[in-house]
Nucleic acid binder design. Structure first.
Lengths: 341, 341
DNA sequence: TGTTAGCACTCAAGCCTATCGAGTGCTAAC
DNA sequence: GTTAGCACTCGATAGGCTTGAGTGCTAACA
């Protein structure tokens, strides 16, 4: 869908104006734009055309025009095709507490929300493809052993495993050797039933412990994949009247709280990759039914090799897409920098 | 503050009615209560008295009466003094995923919110007084060692500590011995500077690692104490018009999201213990300024010895206190049962 | 042929006013 | 001590009026 220069300019003017005010914009307003010297009557003609093309519409007769989803789409596409703007200032408070991924991501979400005035979400990187780095079993007290699994990227998972009677240190050592030599360097999802059986056979009397270790590893994959999504700035939606009525606000905030819905956005983002890494879902394009009044801008970040996660911004359809994209790029950059250190 | 039988009955009738409807209640409504055969005029007289006593008030002339905070207080006190009601049915879905405290508590919050239609909060038990059970340092790769600290109650904390060069297994063993013999059985908050220095002296060249381990332990205390609060059902506030306007809803949900505010309620609850274990903060009694339009019902639960946490329900001042108290008792019971198993 | 000025028309939003009704306090009778 | 009756108050609701922003259309103009 290509637009003549003038029509496109008018469309952009309308949208830009609407982004600021949230009010329908009339022909007179646009006619005062310095860089297109046209009377309101001319604008009206063009607007009638744009409306016919389905890019703008009137909420009611005798009101100004507001963009349709299709109109936004044109606007966004033209925006993203243009040259990258300089990245705005965003304080790098991420440095604290970087030891714990959980805190880091929560902090990132917070930063994102504070800087955009929208709601933000950050999903933890999926560890499916991630490799096991180190496993250790140790005796905690008479009735419990502790299994620690460390993944590439220093993600750690613990599991306390109850045992009938204490293992002696020799057995412990053997068990640790066995697990480490067989599993280290292996991506979790590559662990096969055959491998599990083989290890169990070698484990002698401690097969249950081995089973439990595998359970822990499996849970690792699930737990991370499940719902590890951090959100921030949910209350920002109250700043946009079109989202803030009871019905909608309640539904949206419910989505943020439950996180279930958000994970489908994450999935969508991770699968359908765009060349710039940034994806924009406008209104009905949104994979989540309850968020069709919103737009969502998402990006995929990568920590190390293959550990991909998603960052996203959720706001009204009239969100400042440019700002949102910038903010996402900044945060991606920072996450990347942090990881490299 | 003692009330004659009839005045108390009228007060209770007013409050009970107001709890249901949320509308100011008039004298005629009360006069139709079966168990006190009085005309509306008589009720009006009594109501005038109650208003003079500061227990009810009119939102404006020519409207019915609504309870004041003081009125609620009388009502609640009389309620809690009465015999315990049978605990209502609440499905015990807590059983899944009980291995992870985090999930357990989140689940508890969810259950609580779903059953009461209010917002719920559950704070993780404070580990301040909890004892260290086991410490282990192990070599993960050339540049990192992993410190694992296990507390009484099987709470676990990990910290990856970067090192210049790998430790050999002999040093590792020595370090583990040193830490375990000196720290096991010790409550975290009893670790003194003197003790730290003494251990460092014995650690030889690996003093930084020891420092880091103590840091991890300290963070343990902080992290748990800080913000480990799980909430659920934040959107339930939209069900109560008196809380659901923009201003208030935004502020409340912000509080739930940030959790900072909630922690002061937790503190308050843990310190000021009542004999029944249940505490009720009505309106202005609320320790959090931004929640003075709400009531909060809290209770302290105990996992094992000394690990105390808080469960709470946050709702409008006209919350169904009886139901809230019951729900809390049920959940406390279940948490207790689960831990004992 | 594209642009502009002018005009009649539409319609949401804001404001005013009247009406309604729930609820009160007071007084007098029981 | 209780009740019936009555005048009064005041928020809520609905209707009517005005206002103004914005449109589409037509005719004149460059």
């Amino acid at each position: 869908m290509e637009l003549q220069g003038r029509k496109l300019k008018i469309l952009q003017a309308i949208i830009r104006n609407y982004l600021e005010t949230g009010e329908p914009v009339g022909s007179r307003t646009i006619s005062k734009y310095a860089d297109l010297n046209l009377s309101s009557a001319t604008i009206r003609n063009e607007m009638a055309d744009l409306e016919e093309m389905g890019l703008i519409k009137q909420p009611h007769t005798s009101a100004g025009r507001i963009p349709t989803d299709a109109g936004y789409r044109i606007y966004v596409d033209n925006l993203l095709a243009g040259e990258r703007r300089e990245v705005e200032e965003m304080r790098t408070m991420l440095l604290e507490k970087q030891d714990k991924l959980e805190n880091l991501l929560q902090q990132a979400a917070k930063l994102l929300a504070a800087n955009t005035n929208y709601t933000s979400m950050v999903s933890a990187p999926a560890v499916r493809q991630n490799k096991i780095k180190f496993i250790q079993i140790s005796q905690v007290d008479e009735n419990n052993v502790l299994a620690v699994i460390v993944m590439e990227g220093n993600l750690i998972r613990n599991k306390v495993i109850p045992v009938e009677e204490p293992l002696d240190s020799e057995n412990l050592l053997k068990l640790n050797m066995l697990l480490n030599t067989n599993l280290c360097g292996l991506p979790v999802e590559n662990i096969t039933l055959g491998l599990i059986e083989a290890i169990k056979k070698n484990a002698g009397i401690h097969t249950e412990i081995v089973s439990d270790v595998f359970d822990a590893a499996a849970e690792f994959v699930h737990a991370e994949e499940d719902l590890k999504i951090y959100t921030s700035g949910a209350t920002n939606i109250f700043k946009y009247p079109e989202l803030a009525d009871h019905q909608r606000a309640s539904e949206l905030i419910g989505n943020f709280e439950e996180k279930q819905a958000l994970s489908s956005i994450v999935q969508e983002t991770l699968s359908g990759e765009s060349e710039t890494g940034i994806q924009v879902y406008i209104g009905d394009e949104n994979p989540v039914a309850g968020m069709r009044d919103c737009s969502v801008v998402t990006a995929t970040y990568e920590l190390g090799d293959g550990m991909k996660g998603t960052v996203g911004i959720i706001g009204p359809k009239r969100m400042d897409y440019e700002r949102a994209v910038n903010a996402l790029q900044t945060i991606m950059q920072q996450l990347d920098d942090l990881y490299k250190k």
